[in-house]
Design a protein around this nucleic acid. Structure first.
Lengths: 196, 196
DNA sequence: ATTATCTATAGATCTATAGATAATGC
DNA sequence: ATTATCTATAGATCTATAGATAATGC
């Protein structure tokens, strides 16, 4: 390592992490090879094993960082907001400002390829970083009487799965469309579809 | 072929289709090998190529049948219902009565592995068989003034993505839980969360 | 001496093809 | 003759290891 500090943006290791994150997120664990990642970084495939002991370890490291990133982003997005509506809006904008996580795909297709231990680790991580914070928004709103009683974990799954599907529904439309859809979603969630 | 008619339940071809459907649905295109499928059927891997010219063609055939199956099941589930609420309930129960399609995973992870032509074919098929029928439920309800104005395609994405996430949220719970969650979802969709 | 790369390759798959073989139906 | 399987294998990957090499920092 030539220069300065660990995990700097241009250190070898973090360039590997960046490339791997981009590729794994875009195509999933099984569709990405170590060769693909090496090519993206601009080194030889075998050189990746200097930084990570296996493809699986690389995936786990990359994915935990991704979850942690969303954890911070989410907390930061909602901490100033004091109504559920504005919290949902900020949380939704946070998700839409980032490349999609494809959490459902990860849980369904990628995770089962990992060892039992790593599966547990990533499941716990996705829960702690992404699911729980969203669930808590709903729990708090319920305690404040802002919304009626309804299972908070169902609502969290609700919200997150809709966020995952938005990039698919609009499929390459204008940028503004996302914002409109988010507002429609929140209106439906809070006020329903029945005409007043 | 020893006995009777084409595509009988126990003809070789349809046993291949059954096994392939089960495996592809459970683990996705890339994580399933032709060897896995052959093993499940109880024949040798090379014998699969007597029935299908390639893994990709097998996947496409299997997936189109799956979509078509859901198309029929969906139409059948909602045709007798004359309010949106009961239609949504029946559609939801149809989906939950079947093994999950994992449509989001398919669109994100599996489809991009296919040729341009097959990608188009399956995209169109999923749209026609699954997305459009759900969208139409909302459109009709809107025309009847049953619900207020809101983009029907957004609502369809909404409904479908929530259906996909339900098996993940409850993760191995009691059977009755699904029905409770479906009811909560429909209540939220129609009446919102804001207390009256 | 440590860090970060490289070349070369072992060993394990995976898809797909070629050609043989057994059973059935006419 | 047709149908549905089999064995054997080519050819292409893919992950991971071994060992060489160049550059940097003390």
């Amino acid at each position: 390592m030539p220069l300065s500090n660990v995990s700097s943006v241009c250190s070898g290791r973090s360039r590997v992490i960046d490339a791997a994150e981009r590729l794994f997120r875009a195509r999933g664990y099984n569709s990405v090879t170590m060769r693909d990642i090496a090519k993206e970084v601009g080194i030889r495939q075998a050189s990746l094993y200097y930084h990570f002991e296996s493809k699986e370890q690389l995936f786990v490291a990359v994915t935990e960082l991704e979850f942690e990133h969303h954890h911070k982003g989410l907390q930061n997005a909602i901490e100033q907001q004091d109504t559920l509506r504005t919290q949902l809006n900020c949380a939704a904008n946070w998700f839409l400002s980032q490349p999609p996580v494809h959490l459902l795909s990860m849980l369904h297709t990628d995770m089962p390829c990992l060892s039992e231990e790593n599966l547990k680790k990533l499941s716990a991580s996705s829960r702690r970083c992404i699911f729980i914070p969203v669930q808590q928004m709903f729990e708090v709103a319920q305690q404040k009487g802002e919304i009626r009683s309804c299972r908070a974990n169902v609502l969290a799954g609700f919200f997150l799965s809709v966020m995952e599907s938005i990039p698919m529904v609009i499929s390459g439309n204008e940028v503004g469309a996302k914002q409109v859809i988010v507002n429609e979603m929140i209106d439906v969630l809070l006020d329903g579809l029945t005409p007043k």
